[in-house]
Simulated assay, not measured.
Amino acid sequence: MKKFLKYFLRTVLVLFILVNIITAFHAYKFTHFYDAAEAAPQNKAAAILLGINAFKQQNAAADSGNEKVILTTADHLKLEGWYSAAAVAKGTVCLFHGHGGKKSGTNAEAEAFRKLGYNTFQLDFRAHGSSEGNTCTIGYYESEDVKLVYDFVKSKGEKNIVLWGISMGAATITKAINDYQLQPNKIILEMPFGSIVEAAEGRIKMMGLPAEPLARLITFWGGTEHGFWAFNMKPVEFAKKITCPVLLQWGANDPRVSRKEIDDIYSNIYTEKKLVVYDSSAHESLCKKENEKWVSAVEEFLK
């Protein structure tokens, strides 16, 4: 019996160590973007065991009306943004893309806002697009990136600042509000996750793997590897600090962000608010998927 117990305990210990090694690799890949020439091709087994190599997406060419702006973080990373000024503007909309995205991925939304009479500022988060860095903290340190954009637009004398974000971009806006007490005039949040744990659950489910305990292990290792306590990244809690009107939007077919996450965030917004659900959309650009409905909802909210 003692031999069996020792064998059993050793087996459990070995499995525990292996699971943690695998999730630590996955956490690193989830929070790291390679430059195109940096990573070797992966086979399927390596991707399953060690995670998928994600590459920084390249931006499409900037429109002629876009001014390139470089912002610098506290740790000296150069972030690239595009600022586009309207002849007579009602305000400025700052746009923030999702995890693995790029600023040109928000071109459809930026163009729509400009048609509604707003200046736009599109940013590449750190480790994305044309910005420096390779480490992404799923919104934790990126909250500084949002503040840098907000401060830049405010320094131009703008009195009507609107923050728009999708997925990680939306979650990061709530973190910036919490960290820096930003005071935008209005906020548009599209499919923000409730917490990093829930964001990890959504990613794992899409891989066909059991969410628990993998989501919590990936959250733990992702934060540990980059020097922060990832369990504190909770947009559902940060939403309580918002003091301006909020438009919260979500696609009913979203496989990553659940309706419960959206409802929990909505219930924690204590200011003027509106929730719009897009019946034909998933975790994608609502502006592109259901353009007419999106433009109508946004135009009404910005009045």
Rank of each mutant, 00 (worst) to 15 (best):
R126I: 13
H99T: 11
N59F: 01
T135N: 09
K102F: 03
S155A: 13
W82N: 04
V149W: 10
Y34G: 02
A47N: 10
E142D: 06
M191V: 10
V12A: 15
L148I: 10
A61K: 02
K205M: 10
F121G: 07
I242W: 04
R114T: 06
T72E: 10
M1V: 02
G133T: 07
P184K: 06
S285V: 13
A62G: 01
V153P: 05
N291K: 14
T224F: 15
Y270I: 06
I21G: 09
C94P: 05
K159A: 14
Q122Y: 00
G165Y: 12
F8A: 10
S195V: 01
Q183F: 01
F193M: 06
K68I: 09
V14D: 07
A45V: 15
M1W: 08
E132V: 01
S280W: 08
G81A: 14
G51N: 09
I21R: 12
E201M: 13
I177C: 02
A297L: 03
R114H: 11
V19G: 08
A62Y: 09
S280V: 12
H99M: 12
S167T: 07
D145N: 14
Y28T: 00
F16G: 09
K274D: 03
F152P: 01
G100L: 02
H99A: 12
M191I: 08
M207A: 14
L302H: 08
Q183A: 14
W250M: 04
I138H: 07
P213W: 04
V93K: 11
V93P: 07
L182F: 05
R10F: 12
W164M: 06
G100P: 08
K293W: 03
E261D: 13
I242E: 00
